[in-house]
């Protein structure tokens, strides 16, 4: 969650948004940082529903797995998550019946780091693409081959899960090429 969102929600909570009076009271007790942190907690709790609450509305596009350079070896996974909803969300888990391990990583200047979650902004996109955020997929049930479609199950913080059938593309493939 982005700081700005937290502040917005904090503001909303204090002014009497969709939060319960108990929540509102607790949000008002602390000042400054404490208020913001509390509001952050409220946001998570209220995120998945309730009339009038903003939701994330997610779709997945441009997904592909480049054929691993070593047959049956480690692969990357790339895709774009589009959020047309008014609430931010987070990709928190990816799994696949075709592989024992799918982890989320971010390439940095000289290495890559595993990350626990990736933000999907409200009215925005989360891009997993070459040289940046990506999935690392290991432990294939069966070595991926060109033309295969492999299932990835994406779990988001607000409770959405999206299953996509991801095509295996040539090693050097890029969307639009």
């Amino acid at each position: 969650m982005r700081w700005g969102d937290r502040l917005r929600w904090a503001d909303r909570a204090i002014r009497g948004g969709p939060m319960s009076s108990q929540f509102r009271r607790s949000a008002l007790i602390g000042a400054g940082v404490a208020t913001v942190l509390t509001a952050g907690t409220i946001l998570v709790a209220c995120g998945s529903g309730g009339a009038g609450v903003q939701k994330s509305v997610l779709t997945v596009a441009d997904s592909y797995i480049p054929l691993p350079a070593t047959p049956g070896g480690m692969a990357a996974g790339y895709l774009t998550v589009k959020n047309t909803g008014g609430a931010a969300d987070q990709l928190v888990k990816v799994s696949s019946p075709a592989a024992t391990s799918v982890t989320m990583h971010r390439s940095t200047d000289s290495t890559m780091q595993e990350v626990d979650s990736l933000d999907v902004p409200a009215h925005g996109t989360l891009a997993l693409d070459r040289g940046g955020n990506h999935l690392m997929i290991m432990g294939w049930e069966k070595a991926p081959a060109l033309g295969d479609r492999l299932e990835l199950d994406l779990t988001f913080a607000k409770g959405n899960t999206i299953s996509v059938q991801v095509p295996v593309k040539p090693l050097t493939y890029r969307p639009g090429s």
């Binding site: 070896g73 090693l171 050097t172």
Partner: peptide
């Protein structure tokens, strides 16, 4: 290194193309 899923095959693949 070869167990690098993202940057290494992308770079070497681009050179290969």
């Amino acid at each position: 290194y070869t167990s690098c899923p993202d940057v290494c095959p992308t770079t070497m693949g681009d050179i290969g193309v």
